[in-house]
């Protein structure tokens, strides 16, 4: 009995220490990142049905809503993932501030990508976009002509406003940048780095980003161009 309690205390202490550590927090960021990337890929694949005519999206939305465990299970997992992803970023950003209180007069990055250096900017912008996106197409408060259940019509009317389309296009470019670094970076964080695989992982990150940016941006552009009606 006593051994069991000690073991448990030891294990619990270890979990806390792991989450306290910089590497532990980065692992949390990487794992939640995998979940979120998986979601945005699935989200785009679903949304590309918009090209199959005016009813396909409505039918797809109906199907998702008829499966509450799947719908709400996904939503809960996503909410937790986003929360942990932000928690990890915020705590680590605080550490960064303390680690270099005095900056350089001149600083010239040598190899790092613009995407990798701006993760602390692209992240919060994406978080704001997600809030707007949910209010716009899911709950409708930010959509003047919103009709519950008329997914295709909401989408077309929403994107016919060039300002709305522009904000979506900008947000998707941010997402592309965030993932150009993030998709490769999460492997490095959990310890996957090998001369054979790392170049492939960097290409994978570029491919995932390009797919998401092109796929998502094509929708507002198609609406503005009159291809989707």
């Amino acid at each position: 009995m006593s051994t069991a309690t000690t073991a448990l205390a030891g294990k619990a202490a270890r979990d806390v220490r792991f989450l306290d550590s910089t590497i532990g927090k980065k692992v949390v960021m990487a794992i939640t990142g995998v979940i979120l990337v998986g979601f945005v890929i699935g989200h785009l694949l679903g949304n590309l049905q918009v090209y199959q005519g005016p009813h396909a999206l409505d039918v797809y939305a109906e199907k998702l809503k008829s499966l509450p465990p799947l719908l709400w299970g996904t939503r809960i997992v996503l909410l937790i993932s986003v929360g942990l992803h932000i928690w990890s970023a915020v705590t680590l950003a605080g550490l960064q501030k303390r680690a270099r209180p005095v900056g350089y007069v001149k600083l010239k990055p040598v190899t790092s990508t613009y995407a990798s250096r701006t993760m602390y900017w692209s992240g919060p912008i994406l978080a704001l976009f997600i809030v707007y996106h949910l209010l716009h197409f899911t709950t409708g408060q930010a959509h003047p002509q919103f009709v519950e259940g008329k997914v295709h019509q909401n989408l077309v009317l929403g994107f016919q406003n060039p300002l709305v389309s522009a904000s979506y296009i900008l947000a998707m470019l941010m997402l592309g940048m965030h993932l150009y670094h993030g998709v490769w970076s999460m492997f490095q964080t959990v310890g996957v780095n090998h001369p054979k695989y790392t170049p492939m992982l960097k290409k994978l990150a570029a491919a995932v980003s390009a797919f998401l940016v092109i796929g998502n941006i094509s929708i507002p552009i198609s609406v503005l161009a009159g291809v989707i009606k």
Binding site: S21, T22, K26, L92, L95, R100, T111, S112, S185
Partner: peptide, 22 residues
């Protein structure tokens, strides 16, 4: 060693690669 590095006030790694380059 990781715990000591954090206790000494060094930041975390964001896989940016500037260290490797210099």
């Amino acid at each position: 060693m990781v715990a000591t590095a954090t206790a000494e006030g060094f930041g975390n790694c964001t896989n940016i690669g500037e260290c490797e380059a210099v």
